[in-house]
Design a protein around this nucleic acid. Structure first.
Lengths: 255, 255
DNA sequence: CGGGAGGTTGACAATCGTCAATCAGAGTGG
DNA sequence: CCACTCTGATTGACGATTGTCAACCTCCCG
């Protein structure tokens, strides 16, 4: 795989360096190992697939812009979205370690991705333990989010469930620098919200309408979401951000 | 932390070596690093907590026997079980990396655990990349199971959901050498099955009864489960074991 | 201007939850 | 050995959250 050494590409790897640094102290050799990664940038349209079920992973993909969804199809053709990804998220680090994808990842909007060949990623992981630990941390946070989604879908009613998802998206969008916590563009249709919450689009519609009537959210256009009362939404949504592990990393191993 | 060097303890670390070896080729230094880990063995009674929400992790725990459940509590006090663990599973590797636990882990049966202090685990991870990768793999498989649970709870009806969970448990119990795929002791009450599937115990009861009437399962005692027709159960449960990633590891990085 | 995707709404159906009573089995102490 | 107790399983009646179906609307875009 050729190394794309355009200005754009180099700044993208620096983005990866900063991501890794957020969760873990890394040294110059670690930093250089990341900056030396061969890579390409891919821009994908809405609905384009990043990973397809049964694919064998060939690259690790880091989202640079846009939104994507991870989803599974069950018997009967129903779809369940199991994660939403945005700028700064790795979308198939797991597939690149596990081998065959057991689900698909598809763009929710147009966006661009940093692609690093699987073999180079593997080598980075084995050569640079501090980087490996930071990436592992990333997958652990993903796993924590998945567990919260299980609880959300399994044990909360529609109103709470939708409010919770909106809270999560709002917070993550703000953290990614893509909008304000209480005013952002919702990158999903109501059908997609339904597939993420285990509901139907009709019921999501009714639920959103109700939240709007109750003065919790405000929607000028159907897609733009204004959170009229964050406190209230977090309350309705039984939302506690602990599961996002925003301050992770923990102390380095004592030496 | 003192090293417990009883015969029992040593064989437990060998168990960890074998676990790591299953997913990844490791060398003698890796093997020795594992065998040198300080550790203790703890036996816990039914309902005992392995990890409590808000705890700061102090040890990584590997299950040696018995069953446990990972669960979250939502507003209203409802409980959602987000994972079932058994012999060979790590129960708080994630907490040991993430810091504070965002949920609890509790014994479903009496059982024993191998405990390794967090700091030693951290050091192992940084010093032995091949071991770190194997452990990472373990957490990735857990994450994959979580995603399947999201789909199971979000998009399948009660009958399918329960059947799917039974299939997963049957397969994992057989793989752990704790029973046969089509005849094993179910370590969970119907209320626990309900909390794992996002249903109520009453509805789980009706569903199990129906599966029994349909000749899919057979229950001599309420707790012993005989899968009368594995094919049929897997069919009813829309079960495909791919998400368990039973053949993982992938090729080592080309050198 | 036409087509299409997505949003909105109503009527009705059904899966699943709630409540409550009863039953079965295991462990305990007398 | 036998009441006693507790946990968990079972069942019925009823209610409600959520799904289904279908129509219509609105906006965007070519």
């Amino acid at each position: 795989v050729a190394t794309a050494a355009s200005t754009q590409a180099v700044s993208s790897l620096e983005f990866l360096v900063r991501k890794v640094e957020r969760s873990r102290a890394i040294d110059d050799a670690d930093r250089q190992a990341i900056l030396d990664l061969p890579h390409t940038i891919r821009t994908l349209d809405v609905h384009a697939y990043i990973v397809r079920e049964f694919d064998r992973a060939v690259s690790a993909c880091l989202m640079l812009s846009g939104f994507s969804m991870r989803h599974k199809i069950v018997a009967g053709g129903h779809r369940q979205i199991v994660a939403i990804h945005m700028k700064g998220d790795f979308v198939d680090l797991q597939n690149s370690v596990l081998g065959t994808a057991d689900h698909s990842v598809q763009m929710l909007t147009r966006g661009s991705l940093l692609m690093v060949p699987k073999a180079d990623m593997e080598r980075l992981i084995l050569d640079r333990p501090a980087v490996a630990r930071a990436l592992w941390l990333d997958t652990l946070v993903d796993a924590s989010v998945s567990r919260e989604w299980i609880a959300n879908i399994g044990r909360r009613d529609a109103r709470t469930r939708v409010a919770h998802l909106l809270c999560e998206l709002a917070l993550r969008i703000e953290l990614a620098g893509l909008g304000k916590q209480n005013a952002f563009e919702l990158p999903m249709t109501q059908e997609q919200l339904a597939d993420a919450t285990g509901l139907t689009s009709v019921h999501v519609n009714r639920t959103l309408k109700q939240l709007e009537r109750d003065g919790v959210i405000d929607r000028a256009h159907p897609k733009s979401l204004l959170i009229a009362d964050w406190r209230k939404l977090a309350d309705v949504g039984d939302f506690n951000s602990a599961y996002l592990h925003l301050q992770v990393g923990g102390p380095a191993v004592a030496s």
